[in-house]
Design a protein around this nucleic acid. Structure first.
Length: 468
DNA sequence: CTATGGCACGGATT
DNA sequence: AATCCGTGCCATAG
């Protein structure tokens, strides 16, 4: 990323900007990788030890009390508190956040961290020697969803065996208990599940084609489009979709499809660890909104002071190299700080603006654009874009949504529309829906209502049940 | 004839 | 400069 250290020392400001920008667009997982890389290659950089908060177990900032637990009386309840929170567990450990609904420890249950072992136990008897090692290798690269995080070719390269051999092992793994485990993509997992299910009782053939040829549309719930691609009537496609969502699971490592907490709105998109968490201080809804910007670290990053001293006694030829290292380390630390600062300011403003959305749901989202925010924060538009892109936020109700949702121009209208249709006792046509929306002060074209419906996966009026 | 989806255009957003 | 979004017009299905 920045090998040319000489130039950097000369053009500090330019480099500073460039690095900060690229860091800004990283999610916490990617950021951690970047930090690890830098930490490994630069001896001048160091990670100072962590201090845990005794009550909430969060890692504390370099000095000062835990901002989550400290009872600082806040003067203005409408102003959210924003805090950059170093939390190692968000990178490689287990999340402590969902501990309420964790099942009691059962040595024989297949909990998340035991998934690889659980599967290996099943497949091991069928495999000999090398194949067993291949299986173990593959299983050690599963993510929480039960999908592989590496390509099969990597395994083939690692073991010096042909791809076919790896694929054969993978096929055996995929048919083990969480059926579909060890697939590369959700699509592959679904297909395997369909195969296994089809052995006992036949599955609709349309379901297979939907997954194979229309996975993209399927996951985006664009059913009318899907029907067109498959050249099948919408009714049949809907039946196939129903079959898929009731019997198959694109993420074999998870027991349920979508968000369990909100059974009404099944979300096909599943995100992993959020980059930002919004909640309340001490989980008390009467307190301020509390925004945590997650730093995937177990401590604080800084320039190693010992290294500075060591330079004095360094030999003539090494001194220049070390100086460069030092320079790069301090640049890196500064850039990280800059990134966090920007994120902090951004979230401060966003949380303030979208307070109603955070507390009361999609209907209360205000249409805010990135451009607008860039004016208020006095940064370039692209800075906001980078900061927002690809990041996810956990809301107080534990739902994880993309940060870009905070800038969705039409989400509030779509959600209102969803409500109206949910409460209708007679299927309303698009034109009728337009009129109802107009009474609520929202002006949209008939065509637009149709699009919103499609986005929400709601069928046209004549295909909807009168009752539900 | 009515309800809806497809295509394409223009303006806003990124 | 590229992309997304709302909309109008037209074709098609029922």
């Amino acid at each position: 990323m920045y090998q040319t250290t000489r130039q950097i020392t000369r053009h500090v400001t330019t480099a500073h900007l460039a690095v900060t920008m690229s860091l800004l667009s990283l999610t916490n997982g990617e950021l951690r990788e970047e930090i690890d890389r830098e930490l490994a290659s630069n001896p001048a950089l160091e990670l100072v030890e962590e201090r845990h908060c005794p009550t909430c177990r969060r890692i504390l900032p370099a000095n000062g009390p835990c901002p989550v637990c400290s009872q600082s009386p806040s003067s203005d309840l409408s102003e959210p508190l924003v805090y950059v929170s170093p939390r190692e567990d968000f990178y490689n450990g287990r999340s402590e956040d969902r501990d309420e609904d964790d099942s009691p420890d059962d040595p024989f249950s297949s909990s998340t961290e035991e998934l690889p072992a659980y599967v290996l136990r099943q497949v091991a008897p069928d495999l000999a020697g090398q194949d067993r090692r291949i299986a173990a290798f593959l299983l050690s690269h599963l993510n929480e969803d039960g999908l592989l995080t590496i390509e099969l070719v990597e395994a083939a390269f690692y073991f010096h065996v042909p791809m076919a051999r790896i694929e054969a092992v993978q096929r055996i793994i995929q048919r083990a208990d969480p059926v579909g485990v060890g697939s590369i993509t959700p699509q592959q997992a679904l297909l395997v599940q369909l195969d296994v299910l089809g052995e006992t009782c036949p599955a609709p053939e349309l379901a297979r084609r939907a997954i194979k040829d229309g996975m993209d549309l399927l996951s985006r719930r664009q059913y009318p489009d899907l029907a067109r691609v498959l050249r099948a009537p919408l009714r049949q496609v809907m039946a196939a979709v129903k079959y898929i969502s009731e019997n198959l699971n694109p993420y074999p490592g998870r027991s349920h499809w979508g968000d369990v907490r909100q059974p009404g709105a099944a979300n096909v998109q599943v995100y992993q660890r959020p980059d930002i968490i919004i909640g309340y201080q001490n989980d008390d809804p009467k307190k301020n909104l509390f925004v945590e910007i997650i730093m995937p670290l177990g401590g604080t990053l800084r320039v190693n002071p010992m290294f500075k001293q060591a330079i004095q006694q360094a030999s003539e030829e090494k001194r220049d190299d070390w100086r460069a290292d030092l320079e790069r380390a301090s640049l890196f630390v500064k850039c990280i700080q800059q990134r966090n600062h920007t994120m902090q300011r951004l979230m401060q403003r966003v949380a303030g603006l979208q307070r109603d959305f955070i507390l009361h749901g999609e209907k209360h989202l205000k249409p805010v654009t990135r451009a607008q925010l860039s004016l208020e924060l006095e940064v370039h538009e692209s800075t906001i874009s980078r900061a927002v892109a690809g990041k996810t936020v956990q809301l107080p109700n534990r739902k994880i949504v993309p940060l870009s949702e905070f800038f969705d121009r039409s989400l509030n209208v779509r959600s209102l529309l969803k409500d109206i249709i949910l409460q209708e006792n007679h299927p309303l046509s698009d034109t009728e829906l337009v009129e109802i929306l107009q009474k609520q002060g929202i002006n949209v074209a008939r065509r637009t209502v149709a699009k919103y419906r499609a986005m929400e996966g709601i069928l046209p009026a004549h295909l909807r049940r009168p009752s539900c």
